[in-house]
Design a protein around this nucleic acid. Structure first.
Lengths: 258, 258
DNA sequence: CGATAATATGACGAAGCGTCAAAAAATGTC
DNA sequence: GACATTTTTTGACGCTTCGTCATATTATCG
């Protein structure tokens, strides 16, 4: 089901005052929803509460989002957009192709550490019973964003192949590398944020394990320079501070609070 | 919240007629739930419908499960138990340590391909908003099963280290390997079963990518014999038919139907 | 067989979703 | 500026589902 408002907002330029106001209100609603999620968790997020928080009626909220799930999906789109920015910077980082690819992984880790809610949203949005309730338009929007973000990572892989850091034969399975780290990071993300006591199960902190495993994985693909020829911890720290000072700061603040 | 019935069922031996009947009814309920999930999907699964299907009242269902989520968690426990059996067989497979470990991965893939519903359940159960509604007892039960299944994989890694197939230095990061494949398979599983058009995003079939990536990952850890010295496709086929004829059959039946 | 304990039942209250007729506001017309 | 028309907003309402609990039914035991 398409929403009345989204048609208006996305109508062709020029952007009228009304369109701007609507877009602004949409952001306000999303901010409120995000806030509720952050403060009280997903079970507490209801349309009535969002309506109360933004001081509009429920009907108005439904003019922007065809369902609660649609709203959460929009939040996910915002997050993916943020990630796209981070990934873009990572892909342009000065360093070896392997460093740039690793930087993307680090960005993913740090972003979700800085914004744990995002991980939950993404997780929820992937459930089919939830997806059913999202408008086709919004799903398409999200898919196209995912498309873009994958492209960024894939480009780095292709560069690596063309400059010889990866064997030429890797070419037809370039997407295998991207899918590999994507699934690995995504899986780890969910396992980590699921309150599952990984430590109790005998695992080290997730970020460290992820980093280690990424390096082993890339070694397996023979992505030069191999991790045995590199100071991996130093590399991690350098990339983090070079590219993701913001996220690091947020994470540290969060730590202090708890 | 603990359920009246589960206390009874788990009471100390000897198993009385009543206990047997209760346990039997619990299985009946779970079978029904599974059936509804299979036929109609998660959104269609309601306590009223389950009650109607098993021809007991809703109150009686609630004597077995403290909530709908508790019920789904029980379904997950059944699945994990199945996986434990498969993993155990895989770990005892005649072959190199690397083959045995790979066999575990294949088992995971095939099981979820044969029982797609399971993947959904697991996915749902990992959401915190859902977990909140599961009784502590059941969560503990699931955790202990997960503990066991991890242990099986970890033992294979340890054997590999002690027989020299993996470098001695791997010892302190043995759990890294297990976590790596766990997260990779779990992530891929969810991405695959999420109706997300991976093909549209330019990816090959998941099982193939997973198999390839597993081999690269193990190569990265230097788990001998390396994939470059092995016919990987043949290995996959051999392990599948040696260990998982059942699952293959189910998968093929499923294919025919569609 | 009657008393007591255990179990099963389904009507009920609460919560949340999404709708839609009516009210309010904005826009257009003279 | 006053009236008509269109657009937007509102919140009461219907519906679904959850989980509970007083009551009814069944089982157990003296």
């Amino acid at each position: 089901m398409e929403c009345p408002v989204s048609k208006l907002i996305k109508a062709i330029a020029p952007v009228s005052r009304k369109q701007r106001e609507l877009a602004q209100r949409e952001e306000l609603i999303l901010d409120s929803a995000q806030n509720i999620l952050h403060e009280q968790g997903y079970s507490y997020l209801t349309m009535d509460r969002v309506a109360e928080a933004v001081e509009y009626s429920k009907g108005t909220i439904y003019n922007h989002f065809s369902s609660k799930e649609d709203m959460v999906c929009s939040l996910c789109c915002r997050s993916i957009n943020n990630l796209i920015n981070m990934f873009t910077r990572a892909a342009e980082y000065k360093g070896t192709s392997r460093e740039r690819f690793s930087a993307i992984g680090i960005g993913y880790s740090l972003y979700h550490q800085a914004h744990p809610m995002t991980a939950q949203n993404v997780q929820i949005i992937k459930i089919n019973a939830v997806r059913e309730k999202i408008s086709d338009a919004k799903l398409a929007e999200m898919e196209s964003l995912e498309q873009r973000i994958i492209e960024i990572a894939l480009d780095v892989v292709k560069e690596a192949i063309s400059c010889g850091d990866l064997p030429k034969e890797t070419s037809p399975i370039a997407n295998g590398i991207v899918f590999g780290v994507w699934s690995m990071y995504f899986g780890a993300l969910i396992l980590e944020h699921s309150d599952i006591p990984l430590q109790d199960l005998g695992f080290s902190p997730t970020v460290q394990l992820l980093w280690l495993n990424t390096q082993k994985f890339l070694d397996g693909y023979n992505w030069l320079p191999l991790s045995s020829d590199t100071d991996n911890e130093a590399m991690f720290n350098k990339i983090s501070s070079d590219l993701y000072a913001n996220e690091i700061e947020i994470i540290n603040k969060r730590k202090k609070q708890s």
